[in-house]
Design a protein around this nucleic acid. Structure first.
Lengths: 240, 240
DNA sequence: CTGCGTGTGTATCCTGGCGCACCGACGGCA
DNA sequence: TGCCGTCGGTGCGCCAGGATACACACGCAG
């Protein structure tokens, strides 16, 4: 998960499959380019494809009303978009917004379903991933409620940095405000605080992470916690 | 879901199974009495049994730290406790606290797993239930963040009333404060407001819902939304 | 009938974030 | 070179809810 300019053209979930299953699965995937701002799913909408981001990433957003939006999860090369299919449903509960442009693997829902039936390894892996996601959802609820904006922002930047595979991010205050469910001016203050502490630098939407360790320090424990769960259940469970 | 003094001794998920599967499933269940305050699961702990509350109900609580606790879901006769088993994991992500004492059906994790393998109907049903739960988790995150205490309290009382199958609840302000992640004094104010509007009446921990319709009015849309999703995916999907 | 524990009302001060609004500054484009 | 759209800094009044603290009231037990 070291930042790099290009980033690996792989998806961790797919990499975790046994060789056989992986080859068969990949044969049915195609690479598509996700465009920034593209909406891959709307709440209540039908899911036509499953996406495995490579160097792109996607925000999952709960949309209570026009003014009440909150990002509740993020999917990058460590995850997949299209969870409900694992549960036998083809309906999306959330809005899926492409937040980092780039390539992703894509597979039609029906084909995905067939692979799922045939590969116990795939089932087990995605079951674990779904568990991680639920864990994160409940954590987000508490984190958003209890933690201060500055810490939440730091956490969010770290999560984004991981998924962008880069320490250069392109994010306006406006956009961050939407993701975190706060005012734009609130982001300005929090971001200034982080910049003053030399943890980040930004200029008209270009954010650079200067001090990753410091940023972790400034974030709430939720960042570390999320990663720990992912590591335990996805990375370490790989080789049982 | 009409309130009644005794409440039905059934669990809606189990009732939704095809006769055959249900009989076989019930044969492996035993009825146990859940005691108020009992902890059925700790975060990270092993799940030994699956519970299907009958007239009891259980809170799922995210526990960031001693002072940061938040109820993120509630399980009553409409649901089940032990989701992760559906995903092939036997670890609980959340604290499960018995909040309404009463009977529940219980089945050992391993036996549950066997039934799950053998019954596609059970798989499909619980898949849908898990989807509903994820939906609710993401909604709770946004609701807790955006909505005011009074509305959240109203919502919470309604949810509890449904699961208690009664319009008489036993809940101290202290307890409500913990569930909603706020101060006790905050609950006192919100509860007084609801009482002044003749929606509830309470006295030393005994709360009576006087005007259910009014309470729904006073709650945020999240109560209605949660129920709608449940109806669509569990109740209506029953007879396709 | 008295004492104590539990449950509730209330008060004061504090703070984070909101709503609204305005302005300055940078940078792409003509 | 000058315009304009995007982006970010700032100011002000406001309010929900936090922290802390105290007081009272009911009801059970002794």
């Amino acid at each position: 998960m070291k930042p790099s300019t290009l980033g690996p053209m792989t998806n961790h979930l797919i990499d975790s499959l046994p060789h056989q299953d992986r080859a068969s699965f990949l044969a049915d995937c195609e690479v598509v380019d996700l465009v920034f701002g593209e909406v891959l799913a709307e709440p209540g909408g039908r899911i036509s494809h499953v996406y495995f981001p490579l160097n792109s990433f996607i925000s999952l957003i709960a949309n209570l009303s026009d003014s009440e939006r909150l990002e509740v999860a993020m999917v990058g090369s460590e995850g997949m978009l299209g969870m409900p299919l694992i549960l036998g449903l083809d309906e999306s509960p959330l809005r899926a917004l492409v937040q980092g442009a780039g390539p992703a693997l894509r597979i039609p829902a029906a084909v995905f379903g067939r692979h799922l039936e045939q590969s116990p390894a795939l089932q087990a892996l995605l079951g674990r991933y779904l568990y991680v996601l639920m864990h994160q959802l409940s954590r987000v609820a508490a984190c958003t409620h209890f933690h201060q904006l500055e810490a939440r922002l730091a956490r969010w930047l770290l999560m984004t940095q991981d998924r962008a595979h880069s320490d250069q991010l392109h994010l306006t205050h406006e956009f961050l405000a939407m993701m975190l469910g706060v005012r734009r001016a609130g982001i300005t203050l929090a971001a200034m605080a982080l910049q003053t502490r030399r943890l980040i630098r930004y200029h008209r939407g270009d954010i650079t992470v200067l001090d990753r360790a410091g940023l972790i320090e400034a974030s709430c424990g939720c960042y570390a916690s999320d990663r720990r769960i992912y590591r335990q259940l996805i990375i370490e469970a790989e080789a049982p």
